[in-house]
């Protein structure tokens, strides 16, 4: 009775057929690497937003200051129409759409780059 058959033990190495896991795991598990990935996406998107808002502020936002400092510049007429009316009444709208369009394209590019980065497989 003392000689018991030892339990059978299976000896294995690391599973070579296991699929490498994508880096999305780093984000889910909030590893330091995952945090760096996320921080870089946020930085890119915030920097993009800041650039677009800066352009908006410099182009449209400077008009009141210009009118205050140099009223003569605002009072220019072209073919009898005050230029400021053409700018504030018409030209600003296509300009806003253009800025918005540039933003949407760049923001989607940032996201695509992020998807490519974290979908890559770990070796």
């Amino acid at each position: 009775m003392s000689e018991r058959t030892p339990e059978r033990v299976r000896v294995t190495g690391p599973d070579r057929r296991a699929r490498p896991r994508p880096r999305t795991g780093d984000i889910d598990e909030e590893t330091p690497l995952g945090r760096i990935y996320l921080a870089s996406l946020l930085r890119d998107q915030l920097w993009l937003a800041a650039r677009i808002l800066a352009v908006l502020g410099i182009t449209i936002g400077s008009i009141p200051l210009l009118a205050f400092v140099a009223p003569g510049v605002v009072d220019v007429h072209v073919a009898g129409v005050p230029v400021i009316w053409l700018v504030l009444g018409v030209a600003v709208y296509p300009w806003l759409v253009l800025l918005g369009w540039r933003y949407v394209r760049a923001a989607e590019r940032n996201e695509d780059a992020f998807v490519d980065l974290v979908s890559e497989l770990e070796r």
């Binding site: 993009l48 937003a49 677009i52 808002l53 908006l56 449209i60 005050p82 400021i84 009316w85 504030l88 009444g89 600003v92 709208y93 806003l96 800025l99 918005g100 933003y103 949407v104 923001a107």
Partner: peptide, 24 residues
């Protein structure tokens, strides 16, 4: 006069700010 054009400009530009900061 022209100073009132800031209302429609602001009401439209508000959507650009919304787009870049909060929409998605």
């Amino acid at each position: 006069g022209a100073d009132m054009l800031w209302y429609p400009v602001g009401w439209t530009a508000g959507y650009l700010v919304l787009l870049v900061l909060v929409a998605a």
